[in-house]
Simulated assay, not measured.
Amino acid sequence: MNERLPTQLVVAAMLRRTNDAGGFGVVLAKGDPQAGAVLVVARARGGPVRLLERGIGPDGRPGLIDATPADDPDSYIARRRSRDPDLWVIELDGADSERLAAESLDVD
């Protein structure tokens, strides 16, 4: 059996680790507290936005997938939330936001 921590605990840990590392983390939209997916809006100190989420990589193992659209990220987030109301949207702004997201979501 593959047991995961509830999403609300994973999100809280991700925000805490980001803030402890000198970055800034905030919940933009809450999803299902137990099993919602997480979409991370990652910035490197105010730089360009990257949208990251847990997915299956090309090697078949769980990984952090870059879901950044070619068009407007805000409209992509709105579309995703309209199709999946259980989706959490978290913004992390810091030098290590991608690494902290990968570690918190338990992906390589």
Rank of each mutant, 00 (worst) to 15 (best):
G94V: 05
A21C: 00
S104D: 01
G25A: 04
R45N: 15
E103R: 14
L9M: 03
L15I: 10
Y76V: 12
T18I: 00
D74Y: 09
V41E: 13
R61E: 10
F24H: 15
Y76H: 15
V107K: 06
L64G: 09
L28F: 11
N2A: 12
G94R: 05
A37Q: 13
L105S: 03
A70K: 14
G47Y: 08
A101G: 10
L15Q: 02
G63W: 01
A21H: 09
L39M: 12
E98P: 02
V11N: 11
T7N: 05
R45S: 10
A95V: 10
N19C: 07
P6Q: 02
D93P: 05
I77R: 09
L105R: 03
L28Y: 03
M14Q: 07
I90M: 02
S104N: 04
R4C: 05
A13E: 15
N2W: 07
L28M: 14
S75Y: 06
E53W: 11
Q8H: 13
Y76E: 15
A78H: 10
W88L: 01
G31F: 03
P69Q: 09
G23W: 06
V89W: 05
A44S: 13
D108S: 13
P6F: 01
V26R: 14
L64Y: 13
D84F: 08
P85F: 00
V107F: 09
V40W: 06
I90P: 05
D106M: 08
G46H: 06
L100R: 06
R99S: 13
